[in-house]
Each structure stands twice: as C-alpha cells, then as structure tokens.
Design a protein around this nucleic acid. Structure first.
Length: 417
RNA sequence: GUGGGCGUUGCCCAGAGGCUUAAGGCGCCAGGUUGUGGCCCUGGAGAUCGAGGGUUCGAAUCCCUCCGUCCACCCCA
C-alpha cells in the first residue's frame, strides 16, 4: 500500500477506462471538424487577472474555487478553472480578429476547481469546449446548440433535454434585475439564508435555487423574457425559430441562469431526462462583452462546454457499448534460449512492418505463454521451438478459431501483411 | 464551507471484544506428465484490518482525534 495517494478530487485514468476516453475525445474532434472548428490548446495556468476580469469577481468560481499561487517571480498564477477566458485571451493575443470571422475553436483540456468532490464533480476534470468568436447572428447560437446535440446523440446519449433561456444584455438586464429585487424584497421572509445573500450579490441566481420554498417563489417571479430589449427579444425569437428549423427539442426555462458573469442573451444547458444532483452534462451561452472586457474591441461570441467525466458516467449508466482499444495482433511464444533470440528478431521485423507484436520475455512454460497470449487479446500466436528452428518454420495459431499451421519462416511477413 | 454514510490484500467483501494463525470470491503466479489458451481441478504469493491515541487481561471489533472516500447542500462540467 502506498502512503502517497492522488490528491483529493483527482483520479488516475487507468488503462481499463481509456476506451471511454478515446471514444469521447475522438468523437469530439470529429464533430468539431464537421462544423468547421479548429483545435486550440492553451496553457494549463494563466495569470490570475484573466479569470478575475473574465469570469467575474463576484462569482463562486473566482471567490473560492480557484487554485491560485504566486510563482517565483511573484506573479499570481491560477490553474485554469474554465476554458472560455483563456481562449479569448489567445484570440486577442494573436490578433485573430484579422482572420475570417467567426473564429471557431475547440479544446479538450483539464480544468481545476477547489470544491468538495462528489458524484460527477472533481477538483480536476476534463472539459471539451467550443468557442465561436466574432459573430452576433442567432443562427450561430443555433448551430452551436445543434452541434452539441449531435455530439451527444452520436455518442449514444439520446435521453437528453435542452434547456434554453435569454438573460438579456447590458441594456436590458439592469431593469430585469431591479424587477427581480423588488419582487424578492417583498418575500424576504420566505427566502432561504443563501438567497437572502443573493438578493444583493447576484439576484439572477435567486431563480435557480433548488430549495422548495424558493422554487415556489421563482414560479411567479418576473420573467427575463418580459424585460428583454428589442435586440435581445429579436435575437431570442430568431434563435427559437432556427432551433425549430433544425428540429431541436428545446425547452424554455425562465429559471435557467449560469454561474459565470460573462453570459449575455442566450444561455443553454443539456440535462439527462433522469435528473439527479450534478446532472448538467454541459452548457454554454453567448458572451458578447467578454472580449471587450479583456481589452479588445466589441466582439460578440458564443461558447459551449461539457464535462467528459459526466459524459462517461452517463455512457456507463446507459450501457452504451464502446469500441475497444486495439490489442497487439501477434504474440510470439518460444521455447529455449535460441528460440528466444529468433523471437526477438521476428518481433522487431513485424513491428518494422507495422504489425503489432509482443513476446513473452521470460522463460515460462508454453502453457503459461498461451494463457498470457489469451488474456492479452492477441489475434494470433506464433510459436518457435527447437523443431521450428531446425526446419526454418514457425507455428502460426489463430486464437479465435484455434486453427494452427506450420509455415516457412520467410513467408510470415507476406502472410500477415 | 455545511450535513450524513463508509474505510479489512490489486478489486469485491465475511467478521461486531477471546473460537482469527483475519474467511471467501475475482484477479495474479504455478501445476494438472513430453511444446499449446479460453472451461474445470489443485496449490501458492499477497493484509502493519485508513493513521494516531485511549479503554481492556485481551481490540479489525468499543471510545476520541485526524485523514481519506462516497452521498447530499452550495456551486458547477
């Protein structure tokens, strides 16, 4: 038993799990290329200021969930807690506004948040995210929701719902927040302690409190849709039109708000039909002011991100079959020291010809070698012993139908190719 | 940060103060007569019973502290 374990909320992804990971990663990449997204990789850590400015000083993430430390030069560094701000930073840093807009980028990278781990929630988790920067048209919102939907569907996660809302923009949100505040102020006696706090800090989040009494209140709370400015209203209704056009089964949810400050207009989430606690598989929204807040010129943008651990959790729950990872094609068994040398040479020769091969490497019985070949899942076993050495042949056994034949040593390569 | 459940070999788990030299299953290793896998049979290795302290003649078993883990809240992927 080792004394040092992986830090709390982190996990090793062992070989037995890798088929799931490869499946999801591969499908994510394929989907992105279908929609014209290109991969970007940003550093695991950034200057802390990026997240404070990007994500929002008052958000839970920035307030208490960041892994922040000073490096040796005294610069405050933070392990990326989310993927959007770094991508926007890269967009600005590399002058991507000079590329054809929108710039469509995707990433598959770990994110770090200091919080209590539980089902589907970790201190390090992997996010697959996409960002389309430089376009305000609601058809882009529809396209990104369509892409996320096809991605989940293609993986095999069919029982999902799409929640949709619009939380307005800088113009119309203030009046909505005022309406919310005045409504909730009348009912402070029925609010839970956390919500009393929210009333001044982040009134939007009053809407998605899960406490029963607060949910009751939320039912007759003012709706953001009643407070949208004309621009936001049009954007929202056009988006819904496009979603219908694309046959996407969205559900309007006036209580859907998201925890990061940069969202404007469109917000959406993907949830399993069977709801649980940490159920959101992914979500996203528009962030039309973020680039500007980071020092660029006004640049509308939208993004989507999903948690890979949660996807895999749901793949398992739904019993979805995953394509297995490849196993070596050939196992080379041998008997005796001289045969071993021949086996090593043959293995090298096969590999040079792109045929995957393993040898048994020890000096165990042929039976043991066969057992090992069986567990390692190779399709064939080549056996070399004294007889084969003498006759310049090998035994080639098909492990699936248990057929075996003797073939001349110099014909193996041609046979396997 | 708050509340609850649980920590026995690589994994699943029995045991609930002395009958434990801690049982069983999976997995691993070896063997079941000459150089052949999957099933079956036999044997073997592998555990300071999460850590530290206490109660007791005696603790895996009772008590305390810590740590870890799981579940829920908060928040989010």
């Amino acid at each position: 038993m080792t004394e040092i374990k992986s830090p709390r909320g982190t996990a090793d992804i062992l070989p037995v799990e890798q088929a799931y990971w490869e499946y999801v990663r591969k499908y994510a990449g394929d989907t992105c290329h279908l929609y014209g997204y290109q991969r970007i990789d940003t550093p695991v850590f950034e200057e802390t200021a990026l997240f404070i400015r990007g994500v929002g000083k008052e958000t839970e993430v920035v307030q208490k969930q960041m892994y922040t430390f000073d490096d040796n030069s005294g610069t405050s560094i933070t392990l990326r807690p989310e993927g959007t701000a770094p991508v926007c930073r890269a967009y600005l840093e590399h002058g991507m506004h000079n590329m054809p807009q929108p710039v469509k980028l995707f990433y598959i990278s770990p994110a770090f948040r200091y919080e209590r781990p539980q089902l589907g929630r970790f201190r390090q988790h992997w996010q697959f995210g996409v960002e389309a920067i430089g376009e305000a048209d609601p058809s882009l919102d529809a396209e990104i929701i369509d892409m996320a939907w096809r991605f989940y569907q293609g993986l095999g996660l069919k029982e999902l719902s799409i929640k949709l809302n619009s939380i307005g923009c800088q113009l119309c949100r203030p009046s909505f927040l005022e309406a919310l505040k005045s409504y909730y102020t009348k009912h402070t006696d029925k609010l839970c302690p956390e919500c009393k706090e929210r009333l001044t800090r982040s009134p939007l989040r009053l809407l998605d409190c899960k406490k029963l009494s607060c949910r009751e209140l939320a039912k007759s709370a003012p709706l953001s849709s009643d407070h949208l400015c004309d621009d936001c209203k049009n954007h929202f209704s056009q988006l819904q039109h496009y979603l219908e056009l694309l046959d996407l089964p969205f559900e309007l949810d006036p209580c859907l708000v998201r925890g990061l400050d940069y969202y404007t207009k469109t917000v959406f989430e993907f949830l399993p039909r069977e709801e649980g606690a940490q159920s959101a598989l992914g979500g996203g929204g528009r962030y039309d002011n973020l680039i500007e807040e980071l020092g660029g010129k006004h640049t509308p943008a939208i993004g989507f991100a999903t948690g890979i651990e949660r996807i895999i959790l749901n793949l398992k729950k739904a019993d979805i079959a995953i394509p297995p990872l490849p196993t070596p094609r050939v196992y080379i068994a041998y008997l005796g020291e001289q045969a071993k040398e021949e086996a090593l040479k043959l293995a090298a020769e096969l590999r040079q010809n792109n045929i995957s091969a393993i040898t048994s490497l020890g000096s165990r019985s042929l039976k043991a070698q066969m057992r090992q070949a069986n567990t390692s899942g190779t399709a064939m076993v080549i056996t070399i012993g004294e007889n084969e050495l003498k006759n310049n042949t090998v035994e080639l056994r098909d492990m699936v139908n248990a057929e075996q034949r003797t073939i001349p040593r110099d014909e193996i390569l041609a046979l396997l190719n």
